[in-house]
Design a binder for these strands. Structure first.
Lengths: 186, 186
DNA sequence: ACAGCCATGTAACTTGTTACATGATTTT
DNA sequence: AAAATCATGTAACAAGTTACATGGCTGT
């Protein structure tokens, strides 16, 4: 849901063509979230269908230039003034995985946590390396920081889970999962 | 991409029917990520198409029972042993929004940050209230913790952004955006 | 009788993603 | 001349979401 808005926002800075939009998007987000060129064109088509942008050919060169419409400008304004809703955040695959793992007899939760921990640590190192090597683009830097903060939070959460599981294991030791039968939806 | 794996994992604990799967999923994640019943059935159909589950009718009552196949069991095992890839994390709408906002003349970045900050704080309070009121289901508690950690990280990041923007404003003051023209893709 | 939940499904749609085709221009 | 990049698109698919239709069963 964010590519649409991002392209719209970029277009509000002036008419652009597809390839250019992709380049500008990736300039700001580094190569963190690579944006397939094809998706730019499909998204532009859909934006045009919804009356948020208009194509008009000429550019001097052969480029297909898009410009944002009045409705599109409203959309962008709304996007920037409305906070991202945290009431229904996107499903977090890791959280789901652990939530299921803790109730599954056959699964070694500790090992799942350890695996994820090292993977996230590795990602964290990549980010700090990128921050060192990469250019000092402001937007790009902020995006990287966001990833760093998120990764750190994830590691803290993993440690927290481990601690909580150790405590739970002390209370009900030995047996894999002496939990009551699910007994769902009766 | 996580609903598929979640349903598979639930099915590995024993044959289930659609409605039951939804109930168990929501039991573990609270109402954090409500799962539309329709999606359960479509997903089950697709899982069957891919040979990961098998339907076989009888259950005593009229329920349509699904069981996981050998291939499905492999999938689940792979899911639990492979860490969630942080090399290409899902696009973060907020990060994208801010990354674009800082380069847009017409947008008051500070206000965007403040709006988001209070929204996230509100979400954070909801989570802590849920932790207090809600039952003490282990899985659900962990999920809630994950949301709390993520929200806290987000707030820290927002503060960090504000600080960085204040510093940037001191260096190049007054004029909205004395940035060089984009000059992209030449 | 009626409201509400249980239960299964389908149709239509949106967003995102990959893979491919096509041609122009630029670089080596 | 060959390879790479620029540039625009399309087809097909995956995943998620909503809205609706259809029944059975339960409680008031």
């Amino acid at each position: 849901m964010s590519v649409k808005q991002a392209l719209l926002a970029l277009l509000e800075q002036g008419p652009r063509y597809g390839y250019q939009l992709r380049a500008e998007f990736e300039q700001r987000t580094g190569s963190t979230w690579p944006l397939n060129v094809g998706q730019v064109y499909t998204t532009l088509t859909r934006l045009e269908r919804d009356g948020l942008v208009e194509a008009d050919g000429a550019d001097g060169e052969g480029h297909v230039i898009y410009r944002v419409t009045a409705a599109g400008r409203e959309e962008v304004a709304a996007w920037f003034t409305t906070p991202v809703p945290r009431t229904q955040p996107p499903r977090d695959e890791l959280a789901i995985k652990l939530a299921l793992a803790v109730t599954m007899p056959g699964v070694d939760v500790g090992s799942v946590i350890q695996q994820q921990r090292s993977a996230t640590m590795a990602a964290l190192q990549d980010y700090t390396r990128l921050k060192r090597d990469g250019g000092n683009d402001l937007a790009w830097g902020l995006v990287l920081d966001s990833l760093v903060f998120a990764a750190e939070a994830e590691i803290r959460w993993l440690d927290h889970c481990e601690a909580r599981l150790r405590r739970a294991a002390l209370e009900k030791p030995a047996v894999p999962a002496p939990v009551d039968a699910p007994e769902v939806a009766r």
